[in-house]
Simulated assay, not measured.
Amino acid sequence: MRRLLLALALLAFNAGAAGMIDPEDGMVDMSHYLQDNPYGFLPIPVVITEPAVGYGGGLFGLFLHGKGKEIGHRFIPPAMTAFGGGGTQNGTRFVGGGHRHTWQDDRIRYLVAGGYANINLDIYSGDIAGFGSNRSVEAETRGYGGMQKLLFRVGNTPFFVGASQFWAEMSISAPSNPVIDKTWKRVLGETSTSSGLGILVEYDTTDNFFWPGRGVSLSGEYQFYGHYFGGDYRYDLMTLDGKYFIPLSPRWSLSIAANYQKLSHSQQHLPPMARPYIALRGISRYRYQGENVSTVQTQLAWQATPRWVVLGFAGAGSAADSASDLYNTAEVAWGAGFRYLIAKEYGLHTGIDVAFSDHEQAVYFNVGSGL
């Protein structure tokens, strides 16, 4: 952590020499550096305090290929590429990258990403030696995979339709528990492949990809996993996601988000990571899983200065095997953070969130709203 903070301080100290001082307000701004330098990138530090994998860090670079353009009230971002990696104290290692591109004034959208990871993660639930949210199995998952999405705008409307693909090959083991390790290998095999295709529908009226100030973003995706696509397991996953960005005043804004996932399967056993989980800042990944998972969250932001934003957030999530049992019990998380407008030509904000839940706390570096 000390090395990372020192590196950030040196970056700010050398900003003037690199042409990253905005002459209008004298603040650090990377807009022209990213636009004019073909090798220029925004360094995104990854400080990991995720309770599920322990403390660690890494670094990603975000490359913006162009300036983007304004069409009406919307800012269409340029093509962008990100890649990097990191690790944590419990031996978790990861490396990966992705690329997003649009064509014909945002009439076609494409996203592709992939990577490799060796993740040491506590598995709390599942149909193979899972014990629930208070007891866990120490699992080591190694594998690589990727995903891609392609969307087409419907006429001149905010609607998009398209398709998605996901593929991953992984192995899971329990080095500290020979009995469970042997059970997993007998049921799941030495390695397993998950492969699926999906259909997508989106509705998007937000004004900025990096920092939406107003508008609605809705999406629905249904993914089919099975042997026909090269996978070892047959199941379906439906995901519904919505975000609403509301300007309350020139300085105050409210964001509301909700997500619902439903897993349908006929096989008796699935890999533990195939199941949806509660994804909220402040709650360990994969701690609360179920065949039905729902989250709701809200975030209030105050524009303290033209560059600085202070925000607070709260959310709740529930995981259950039946949709009717959702929110019989719920997990709650909350926190606060800040954002700095690091590239005003793009509306690109970056900053830190500190989040809490009943038994955990974590720090997150975020690019964008964090929702």
Rank of each mutant, 00 (worst) to 15 (best):
R3W: 11
L5Y: 11
L5F: 13
L8G: 07
L8M: 15
A9K: 10
L11F: 15
F13H: 14
G19Q: 11
M20N: 07
I21A: 03
D25M: 07
G26Q: 09
M27V: 13
V28D: 13
V28K: 12
D29E: 09
M30I: 14
N37S: 13
Y39M: 14
G40S: 10
I44Y: 08
I44S: 02
V46A: 13
V47G: 08
V47P: 08
A52I: 08
Y55V: 11
G56L: 03
L59K: 12
L62F: 10
G66E: 05
K69Q: 15
I71A: 10
T81D: 09
G85Q: 05
Q89P: 00
Q89I: 03
N90L: 03
R93W: 15
G98E: 07
H99K: 03
H99N: 09
H101L: 10
Q104G: 00
Y110V: 10
V112H: 00
G114F: 08
Y116I: 06
N118M: 04
Y124G: 02
S125I: 06
S125E: 13
I128W: 10
S133Y: 14
S133E: 13
R135S: 11
R135E: 15
T141K: 03
T141L: 12
L151Y: 08
R153F: 10
V154M: 15
N156P: 01
G162V: 04
A163Q: 12
Q165R: 15
E169W: 07
M170P: 00
S176Q: 14
I180T: 12
I180M: 03
K182F: 11
T191N: 13
I199R: 09
E202Q: 13
Y203K: 04
Y203H: 12
Y203E: 07
N208D: 07
N208V: 08
F210D: 01
G215R: 11
S219P: 03
Y222K: 09
G226P: 04
G230N: 08
G230P: 02
D232P: 00
L237T: 02
G242V: 01
F245E: 02
F245N: 04
L248A: 06
P250Q: 06
L254F: 15
A257L: 00
A258S: 07
Y260K: 00
H265A: 04
Q268H: 12
Q268M: 11
Q268S: 12
H269R: 00
P272H: 06
Y277A: 10
A279E: 12
Q289A: 03
S294F: 09
V296T: 08
T298N: 09
P306H: 10
V309M: 11
F313V: 04
G315V: 06
A316Y: 06
A319R: 03
D321S: 08
D321F: 02
L326I: 04
Y327N: 04
Y327V: 04
E331Q: 14
V332S: 12
A333K: 03
W334P: 00
A336Q: 06
F338Q: 13
A343T: 11
L348M: 10
G351W: 05
G351Q: 01
V354G: 04
H359D: 15
E360F: 02
V363A: 12
G370K: 01
